[in-house]
Design a protein around this nucleic acid. Structure first.
Lengths: 137, 137
DNA sequence: CAAACCTGTAACTATAATAGTTACAACAGG
DNA sequence: CCTGTTGTAACTATTATAGTTACAGGTTTG
């Protein structure tokens, strides 16, 4: 299983999108909702900021989305947090003297790429707005 | 990224399917092709054996597949090695007092399930025989 | 301007998953 | 009986992730 960074990023972005009171929207408040440490939140927000998804200012509470929720796909969020581009690792340096070892890496790459594309399609099809709609239900 | 156990399992099964000389097919030989330790190979083979994919006997070199490569889907192999049933972790215990924290887990489960199914379909569509064909090319 | 509060980061620690290694019991076959 | 093999347990090493402490620097407000 991949880490929970993706889940935390979506949680944070959902809070920013739905919280109107800026003074309430501190890293400590967000951490309280996510159930983690404020530094973990600020660290993650730093990543999302670098990716151009939101903005903030040192010393001033609150964050602003730079992309409309309906235009923000989950795939874009995934890329923002620099999630791994492959789901499965391929073992290093199989024996090139063996007919299987020689070609297994390229073969597995093909298999895993097809799996990866299927996953990308699903993430591309859903936006932050879809998540917000689910949360409101 | 998930671990390389899946890749190693496919590599091992490919070797068993294509190596006719049983006396050659020792855990040490397989380890040489995979580039790992013989114990890692025997450990993985133990898992595949428990799942009913192959058979072997203590003291006697060689392994036998119990399923025809054309009938062995990559998904079955994935299940055999007890791969994780979800790709992304969901953070623990978000704050139930917060409207987002209260529903985020269920919402993310829905998102991740759709991604998971897409992945399963891809793995179901490919068999060990497909891998063997790729290796032969 | 001083105190209180915030963001941004670096650095360290804790935990867990994975892989690699050593060791040895049990079995087979010459 | 000796050599080689499988099957496992137990330990170590490595790495990724998350959590924590500490502090620099900006903002706001009395």
């Amino acid at each position: 299983m991949v880490n929970s960074r993706f889940s935390v990023a979506i949680h944070i972005l959902s809070l920013i999108a739905t919280t109107s009171d800026k003074n309430q929207l501190t890293s400590e408040y967000i951490a309280g909702s996510v159930n983690t440490n404020p530094v973990v939140v600020r660290r993650m927000i730093g990543v999302l900021k670098k990716a151009g998804l939101l903005t903030s200012q040192t010393g001033i509470p609150g964050y602003d989305l730079l992309v409309e929720p309906k235009d923000l796909t989950l795939l874009a969020i995934y890329h923002a947090i620099d999630g791994p581009e492959q789901l499965f690792a391929i073992h290093d340096e199989p024996n090139p003297a063996c007919s299987v070892g020689q070609k297994i890496q390229r073969t597995l790459e093909g298999v895993y790429t097809s799996v990866w594309h299927a996953m990308e399609e699903q993430l591309q099809a859903q936006t932050l707005q879809d998540v917000l709609d689910q949360l409101r239900k």
